[in-house]
Design a binder for these strands. Structure first.
Lengths: 350, 350
DNA sequence: CTGAAAGCGCTTACAG
DNA sequence: CTGAAAGCGCTTACAG
């Protein structure tokens, strides 16, 4: 990069010292009005843009915040990112994001997660990030321990690490499972299939725990089914395997619930059920997902019952906790945000 | 931030000079194997992490790439971001993103765009970004001119600025409009409604141009309708206003096409049409969107005909162009990537 | 193969 | 209110 005008060039052109130029930028109230004006005019003329590297060197910290998200195809993380970015902007801080490319498929398949979470942790540590939000789908402890002293506040979002030495922002995943069961129990349904991925994925494990607890409490019999991925086509395949049993029950006048860990799975179930002459939604089968997609797709001819996840609030809260860390007697917090049901036609009929 | 161990601390502990520690990190082949090992061990023991600020100061450039996207709720930009980030990672470079919070609603409403594009341009210029991808929905020229000399290569994605002094990566928006009309003309349809937003949004303007050209060529009569936003509910409202005319035509045995600038609009049309007893899809009315959502929602009980946009390729190509800029006799390029139709049940019946 | 030294652009007490 | 000077952590010729 060709050398751009530096603070010395501005000082020379304005006939002041470099310290005065620096003060014009950082403490303008210290300058005589005429001096300030002359310096600012010179900055404009020269097209001077301060390099943040100098300040970062001195402070051993930059003032930008950084956010690592696992996967932008997941609307939860898009919501978290927006909540974080807008809250940061409102506080006058910039936030940049990195996508670590995490795929829950790896975990489900038992493969080592092939993401770049630790690479980005290192990258932001070298940049002396002024605060880091780590949105994790797997335990980030080892990666964070490595950079702990080089990045000021760290907040972990969406992963509950045992013995965490940082603030954590979570949603109440057990409540997700409980609410789903309570909803169908309220409809008088006593038999359900619960389609999820293996418990190596922490939110899946916690939702299952909540689901089982509510099922026992409400007297709902639940058959658990494993999905290999959270896609509509997997949802279709699994449902195809269940229609026989569902139709048998329907002929006996019994309703069945299909509870899917993700809306994408649930969406895949719909066409399979509609294609079956004996199965009406929601009279014979009710369907619900559990990660209500905020995205404005208005995705169906029938609205899908789902659970609204507090992604935006999680991101916003994480940024607030970053700011709270500058308070000297701050103690790390573990916040668990509530979820709520969004009833739709696939369970209530409208 | 408490002072972390610096290169001097490592040098002292390893009994070498700071230059040698630097070489261990940047040119390890220059060191005697034993020296190298001793230095690396010391780095490990001390938990030393290099600060990139020093190098940025010297080079007047950092090695990270940065990407500004207008809006993560738009799947096009999520695709671009993924294409860019994976291509960068494959080339051993890190890429960070910023969301400028652009809303096309502002433009459509005639309001000044209230985004943070220029703020982030300035932020990345202060960080001496090693390369910048600017995904723009409005003309970025003034913002870029301001930072032109402080950021090495700049590539603009998705905005065709007149007289651009940089590489540009575009999709063929005129082709989007042409393909849509050709598709319905191939089905023998001669009457269509075209629902778009005003031409202040550049892609909308270009698609309209392509649409008109194809309509003239194929003898299709098109009635143009203005939408205030690209949402399903706006699509529903507009369609509600059209069902009378559509039903009249259906009773005369004439098919009509509804072409929507965005899939979200088109999705909103579906339930309105289904609710009308005289209108069958696709026998009386065919429906298509024009920004095929890559996201894995499997969004409907009937697949929506749409146009596949080359978002991933645009992001990947933009990163390749960034690298190409380091070639001394590089000339700025303007690349226009093709689009293609994805036929679905809403026009072909399956 | 290794070390000593200059310098990148900035901020911050301190002196005046 | 302004200036002179030290120093942040690093890289890079250069000398040996």
């Amino acid at each position: 990069m060709a050398r751009t005008p530096n603070i010395g060039a501005v000082a020379r052109a304005a006939g002041v010292s470099v310290g005065t130029v620096s003060n014009a930028l950082n403490s303008p109230e210290r300058l005589a009005p005429e001096t300030l004006e002359r310096v600012l005019d010179t900055i404009d003329e020269l097209g001077y843009i301060r390099s943040s590297a100098g300040r970062t060197l001195i402070r051993n910290a930059s003032d930008g915040l950084s956010l690592i998200v696992p996967d932008l195809d997941n609307s939860l993380f898009v919501d978290i990112a927006r909540g974080a970015q807008l809250t940061a902007a409102a506080a006058g801080r910039r936030l940049v994001m990195a996508n670590s490319g995490f795929s829950s498929r790896d975990l489900v398949a038992g493969a080592a997660p092939h993401d770049t979470q630790d690479e980005f942790l290192g990258y932001f540590a070298e940049a002396r990030s002024g605060g880091m939000l780590v949105c994790a789908m797997r335990d980030p402890t080892s990666g964070i321990d490595r950079i702990r002293n080089h990045v000021r506040p760290i907040v972990v979002v969406n992963y509950d690490a045992p013995g965490a030495d940082w603030c954590t922002v979570l949603m109440d995943n057990a409540q997700v499972g409980r609410i789903a069961v309570d909803h169908i129990a309220d409809l008088g349904i006593t038999q359900a299939f619960y389609v999820s991925i293996p418990d190596v994925v922490q939110p899946a494990a916690e939702r299952r725990t909540g689901m089982r607890e509510a099922a026992a409490r409400r007297g709902v019999t639940v058959t658990e089914v494993d999905a290999a991925a959270l896609t509509a086509s997997v949802g279709s395949d699994i449902t195809t395997g269940l229609v026989g049993a569902l139709a048998d029950r329907a002929r006996r006048g019994e309703r069945t619930a299909l509870l899917f860990l993700a809306d994408d799975l649930a969406i895949g179930a719909i066409p399979v059920l509609r294609a079956h002459p004996d199965l009406q939604i929601p009279d014979d089968v009710v369907v619900m997902g559990m990660d209500g997609d905020h995205r404005p797709t208005g995705n169906d001819w029938m609205t899908m019952t789902s659970i609204e996840l507090p992604g935006y609030e999680m991101g916003a809260e994480a940024v607030r906790l970053i700011s709270a860390e500058s308070d000297p007697d701050h103690a790390h917090e573990r916040e668990v945000l509530p979820v709520r049901i969004r009833p739709g036609a696939t369970t209530t009929g409208r």
